[in-house]
Simulated scan of single mutants.
Amino acid sequence: MSTPKTIRWGILATGGIAQTFTKDLLVDPTTRGVKHIKHTVVAAASSSSKSRAEQFLKDTGSPSDAKAYGSYEELVKDGNIDVIYIATPHSHHYQNAMLCLDAGKNVLCEKAFTVNAAQTRALADKAKEKNLFLMEAVWTRYFPLSIYVRGLITSGRIGPVGRVFADNSIAMNPEESFSDGKHRMVNPDLAGGALLDLGIYSLTWVFQTLYHTQPKDTRQPPKVVAALKSYGPTQAADETTTMVLSFPRSAEAGGEAHAIATTSLRVATLYHEDGEVPGIRIQGPKGEIQVFPPAFRPTHTRLVMKDGTIEDKHWPQPGPGKGSNFKNGFGGAQNPEGEGHGMFWEADEAATAIVEGRKEGKYEGLAESILIMEVMDEVRKQGGLVYPEKIETTKYPTQL
């Protein structure tokens, strides 16, 4: 058996999502049946201080010889890094990713990829110019659960998909939770609002079921009609957004297909441990596939067939297991001991692509990332949502 290839990661930013990703990254891949690659962290950078980066490396259990940097400019100059994971707010992704690509570094960048499609196109062009790997870190696409759902569709089990409902929302009081208006969820300087932060997952489910499953040479962009409710205190972020998408298809492929994608800060598809309310429903003439919340990290699917057949599947996240003292989670919530969060799947894909010499992800290429950004551009246009020029611009470098 060949020796697994070790991919050396640099972590750009040290917030909550970076901690979750890095802890998952350092879990032994064989615990999820992956044997051809391994991961290690060789450096991390905080824009605030070197000491914060040092603490981050300790908190995540990174190797003791990993380097800590107090600026992103220092990080991208580290010659030991194979790929950089970008974990800043999406308002900063374009500038940060361009910095990395300009320095010759492969990039895995958190979602939403950028603030607009022009920025994503510019990054894709830069990656092509530099012959580098670039991928949007839409982790949900790489779950075995998602691969299973797409397989059900392409196998024809429910017939051609005719309609998809997808919601990813949070039921909260934003005026209380984000009272100072500075939080990334509502702050226009951070491209705040439901669409880019939450709605990307609703669109992920729509696209990976109604677009990605179609043959590359025949699939077409959807038409979009959207309604956007502004967040009152700022009037510069969306509180609730609803999108209706129609995907053209040939009559032989089932004809035009429809999707409704929803997202909100205030109202949501609520879920409990029994998971009885599906947040995603993928419907065909022979049956439907239900995916239970949360949309970004689902662990339960149900296939309901027209003939009465019901197939429930549960998809627990792998990890070191009970007794390992390994704990991970996000946003203050902890997973059971020994259970990973699920971010290692996208890391495995990025590492595999780099080993194989591929320049983009297998389950969402750059063209599809750009198309989804174009859809969100159109949604914002219809809703009149514009962010400050400094975070919409493609000019690099721009001081944020």
Rank of each mutant, 00 (worst) to 15 (best):
T3N: 14
G10C: 10
L12K: 11
A13G: 13
A18I: 09
D24I: 07
L25T: 09
V27I: 15
T31Q: 14
H36L: 12
V41P: 01
V42A: 05
A43Q: 03
A43V: 08
K50W: 01
S51D: 15
R52T: 15
E54D: 12
G61C: 01
K67P: 01
G70N: 15
S71P: 03
L75F: 03
V76Y: 00
V76I: 07
N80P: 07
Y85D: 02
I86A: 05
I86Q: 09
S91Y: 10
A97V: 10
L99T: 02
G104L: 03
L108I: 11
A112P: 12
L123Q: 08
A127R: 06
K128D: 14
E129A: 13
S146K: 06
S146R: 10
Y148C: 05
V149C: 14
R150M: 14
G151F: 06
T154E: 11
R157E: 00
G159I: 09
F165T: 09
F165N: 12
N168H: 13
S169H: 05
M172A: 09
E175Y: 05
E176Q: 07
E176C: 04
S179K: 13
S179D: 15
K182Q: 14
R184W: 00
L190R: 08
A191N: 07
A191R: 02
A191L: 12
A191P: 08
G192P: 07
A194S: 14
L198S: 12
L198Y: 13
G199T: 08
G199P: 05
S202D: 02
V206K: 02
H212E: 15
Q214D: 04
V224N: 04
V224A: 09
V225A: 11
V225D: 13
A226P: 03
A227V: 15
S230A: 08
Q235S: 15
A237E: 10
T241R: 02
M243S: 13
S246G: 13
F247Y: 10
A259P: 03
A261M: 10
T262V: 13
T263H: 10
R266M: 10
A268E: 14
R281Y: 04
K286Y: 11
E288I: 13
I289Y: 02
I289A: 06
R297M: 15
H300A: 02
R302M: 15
L303H: 07
K306W: 07
G321R: 11
K322R: 13
G323S: 11
A333N: 15
P336C: 00
E339A: 04
G342L: 01
E349W: 00
A350N: 11
A351M: 02
A351H: 08
R358T: 11
G365L: 01
G365R: 03
M376S: 04
M376N: 10
D377V: 12
E378H: 15
E378F: 09
R380V: 03
G383S: 06
E389I: 10
E392S: 14
T393W: 00
T393R: 05
Y396S: 12
L400M: 04
